[in-house]
Nucleic acid binder design. Structure first.
Length: 278
DNA sequence: AAACAGGCCTAAA
DNA sequence: TTTAGGCCTGTT
């Protein structure tokens, strides 16, 4: 992987492991558009595919201070793929999903987003989150286009259930508000939880109302960099049955990169029969 | 129109 | 420790 820095963009070249279609389409994030414009960490960026990598259009210093870590660029996915591919059960999923990376999203955004995700379709998840950002986030500009940051827990904690009603989030609204209040008043310290060992962090997350096993594991994997977390939802149950031979310890058998194996399997089971996804 | 969706909570065995 | 029913809302 080679980085070429310019004033308004950075080219990431000479890599097989940065494929926007897979990274943004594998279900881990909700704020990237079809043309790969996304908002995260209070910044906006646009990702354009190149022959052997991508171009990231963004503020010049934001790349080093934020996007580099967000895109998990210090991790060698090529090596991880080679290791995981030795397990024949993962071979096809990894071939299909080459280019996936696990984004290092912010803990609060991941927590809030995956609380919203429960029992919802992706379009509705994205629409609820977009409304949340438009109503309570900060306005920022990218070119002459306006975008909205993800609102802080402190900002949401100021709201009442009625204030949040326009989100149309249904029964999840009370979970969002409760989590925001506990984070904002310091009772739930996301940074401290992030420092914990995965199982301890998981137990802590399960103490939040509206957070069960699946949401907790998504927060660990996508919002806290815990690559040994292994979220199991209805799709993963199918993937486990189909590819892993119905193991009951599916998560632990891939060790510290279990979450990355999970993402390849998840993406594969969801998309490998679709014509528009090659 | 009824069932279901990228779960979770509570009550009851 | 496991299981059933209810939950907001939008889509199929």
């Amino acid at each position: 992987m080679l980085l070429e820095r310019n004033s308004s963009f950075v080219d990431i070249k000479n890599t097989d492991d940065f494929v926007p279609k897979h990274i943004f389409g594998c279900g881990q994030c909700f704020r990237w558009s079809q043309d790969y414009i996304g908002v995260a960490g209070g910044h906006v960026a646009r990702v354009v595919p190149l022959q052997d990598g991508v171009r990231v259009l963004c503020d010049s210093n934001a790349f080093d201070t934020f996007w580099y870590d967000y895109f998990d660029l210090s991790r060698d996915y090529t090596r991880i793929r080679e290791t995981l591919k030795k397990d024949v059960r993962l071979h096809d999923a990894i071939t299909f999903g080459r280019g996936i990376r696990i984004l290092r999203q912010e803990p609060w955004e991941a927590l809030c987003s995956f609380i919203i995700s429960q029992c919802n379709h992706i379009p509705r998840i994205m629409s609820i989150i977009e409304t949340l950002c438009q109503m309570f986030g900060n306005r920022i500009y990218f070119g002459d286009q306006e975008y909205f940051t993800f609102p802080s827990a402190e900002r949401i904690a100021q709201c009442t259930l009625e204030d949040l009603a326009p989100l149309r989030a249904g029964y999840r609204t009370k979970y969002i508000l409760s989590a925001a209040q506990r984070v904002a008043d310091g009772a739930f310290d996301l940074q401290a939880v992030m420092q914990m060992a995965t199982q301890d962090a998981r137990r802590a997350l399960l103490g939040l109302s509206g957070v069960g096993n699946k949401v907790a594991d998504c927060v660990l994997l996508f919002g806290m960099g815990k690559t040994d977390a292994f979220p199991i939802d209805v799709w993963m149950k199918r993937a486990i049955t189909e590819f892993l031979g119905n193991e009951n310890d599916a998560g632990t058998s891939f060790g510290e990169v279990a979450g990355i194996a999970q993402q390849y399997l998840f993406h594969y089971i969801r998309n490998h029969n679709r014509e528009d996804f090659q």
